[in-house]
Simulated assay, not measured.
Amino acid sequence: MKCSALQAVVLSLGLAAASSVSGQTQSAGQPIGDRTPSAQPDANKTAHDDSFVIGNDDVLAISVWKEPELTKSIPVRSDGKISLPLVGEMMAAGQTPLQLEREITEKLKNFITSPEVTVIVEKVYSRKYNILGEVTKPGSYLLTADTTIMDAIAAAGGFRDFAKKTGVYVLRKSTDGHETNLKFNYKEFLKGKNSAQNVKLQPNDTIIVP
């Protein structure tokens, strides 16, 4: 009986350790081609977040209570639309999950009594940034929360040998189409000077490394 109890304790500790290791997630940026679950923001944070705007290629989990045929994961197409039974085609891009939820609810009232709809952004593929020029792996990357210029450079494998580290800059377009340049001097940053220049990236920012 004593051996059996000891084995049970060892097995319990082993399962707890395995659970702890499996619960760890990657914090580094992921290239667009590597759409792993670890690259996605927490879906619960984007369920009814009025600051998050749905974009093309995002995957939405749409649930209608007691209506299993209307409960599914739907990707947002390149034209910004989704297609749902009874509702048909509707524009999803440009709306928050809560706005889309309300619109689907209104349309379903023609077919269902008091529909209860939930819209969650299951996977985020629309938020991305570009890094071009003298880095090891230039290209487009998924934008996770709080990604800075330094994070982006690290995700791209760092500078190449002849990169002009004092002349890095970010091209950013405002909603009215106006373009601004945000300068980043890597050498100054390493010396602890002007740390504020290491700004957080926004969707569609492009980092240029000359």
Rank of each mutant, 00 (worst) to 15 (best):
K137R: 15
K45I: 03
N204R: 13
A18P: 01
P115K: 11
D57N: 12
A154H: 06
S27K: 14
E101L: 01
G167P: 00
L132H: 01
I74F: 04
N185I: 00
S51A: 14
I32V: 13
A156D: 01
E67F: 04
A152W: 03
Q202S: 11
P31T: 03
E106V: 05
L201P: 03
L70F: 04
S4E: 10
G167S: 14
L15S: 09
S174W: 04
N194P: 01
V87D: 01
A8H: 06
K200N: 13
A145Q: 12
R77G: 14
K128R: 15
S78G: 10
N181L: 12
I207R: 03
G14V: 07
K193A: 03
L100K: 02
L60W: 04
V9W: 01
F111Y: 14
K81L: 10
T175V: 12
H178W: 06
K191F: 04
I74N: 03
L15Q: 07
L86R: 08
D161L: 14
Y125T: 00
P203N: 10
P115I: 04
W65N: 02
E116W: 00
T96E: 06
K193N: 08
Y186A: 01
H48T: 13
P31R: 12
N56M: 11
T180W: 05
K109S: 06
T105A: 06
S114D: 13
A156G: 12
R172D: 08
G94A: 09
S195P: 06
D161T: 09
I104V: 13
A156L: 07
G88H: 05
I54W: 02
R102Q: 15
N56L: 07
T175N: 14
N194I: 05
N185W: 00
T71R: 05
K165I: 09
P75E: 09
R127C: 02
L15G: 06
T144W: 05
F189E: 06
Q7L: 15
A155Q: 00
A156K: 00
V21K: 13
V64R: 11
I153M: 01
N130A: 15
V117P: 00
S12W: 03
H178A: 15
S114W: 06
L182Q: 10
N204E: 10
A154T: 12
A8M: 11
L143R: 06
G192H: 05
K128S: 14
K193T: 07
Q197E: 11
N44W: 04
P210V: 02
G133L: 10
N130K: 11
E122M: 06
D50I: 11
C3N: 12
D34W: 08
V170P: 02
E103V: 11
E106D: 12
T148N: 12
M1Y: 08
E69N: 13
I149A: 02
E188K: 14
I112A: 00
D79Q: 09
Q30L: 13
S126V: 03
Y125A: 07
L6K: 10
D146W: 05
S126Q: 07
A145E: 12
E188S: 08
N44D: 09
K107Y: 01
D57E: 11
Y129I: 03
